[in-house]
Design a protein around this nucleic acid. Structure first.
Lengths: 124, 124
DNA sequence: ATGGTATTTGCAATAGACTTGCAACAATGA
DNA sequence: TCATTGTTGCAAGTCTATTGCAAATACCAT
């Protein structure tokens, strides 16, 4: 755990939103922490391997975001199409989903994406 | 509707899997249809605008795929992590999801992603 | 501390998907 | 036919992310 990596972790701790590599880079630049963008990517890779960080690839964002794993359970996200605000969803069971989420987050839901991954019959 | 665009549409019609821009490009090259990759991208944009084609941005693929809209209802997909096979899911209601999907597709589900988009309170 | 090994970092270059500018080339229509 | 519009190809550029390599740093046993 080097100074650089601690700076990244500290940033993640004080950031509520999932952040992209570029946002981490920019933020640390502003705080006069010398760090290369490449190092940010490599650090995120390491923190993921260590299980400290979750990587999010939100639909249609075209980039990866990262958030601290801490003790968090499996959860999903909702993102505002206009300002980009990302809010955690505390439920997952996926029934009456839209109504509950609208109540819980005060968002107006207009779309969602559901994807599964697994093994197809031929590959099992 | 130019010859080029008809060639793309025809390809989509005879393809069962959602295809990427590069796959369209390669396939048409093989069929001796002269087309630029840029034109493929622009054509997909047009076909999307016309409501003829759906664009899929599947989780962790890092590229877009396209499929004919035809009369299809809203649906989701499942993709094999090994061979990349993509199969349509006919259900969406999202309850007991995993079990049903495993029965229906014979896949072994090991992960899924659910994302919503909408308007946050500040932006409404 | 000291020297040696392994890890981490920065810089430059690269990869891959996608977009844009621009000029050439249809196609359409009065 | 001429003018207006839409379409294409080529080159170059954007953006996120990765890789090679040498220099800097951290770690550790002596």
């Amino acid at each position: 755990m080097t100074r650089t990596r601690q700076a990244v972790l500290a940033l993640l701790q004080r950031t509520r939103q999932p952040v992209s590599a570029n946002e981490i880079f920019d933020q640390l630049q502003q705080e006069k922490v010398a760090i290369d963008l490449v190092t940010v990517y490599r650090t995120m890779h390491v923190l993921k391997e260590l299980g400290l960080v979750l990587q999010l690839d939100l639909h249609q964002e075209g980039l990866s975001r990262y958030e601290l794993k801490e003790g968090r359970e499996h959860h999903h996200h909702i993102r505002c199409q206009i300002c980009g605000l990302i809010v955690d969803l505390l439920l997952c069971p996926l029934k009456k989903v839209t109504k509950l989420i609208e109540q819980q987050t005060q968002f107006i839901v207009d779309d969602h994406t559901l994807e599964f991954t697994g093994l197809c019959p031929q590959c099992q």
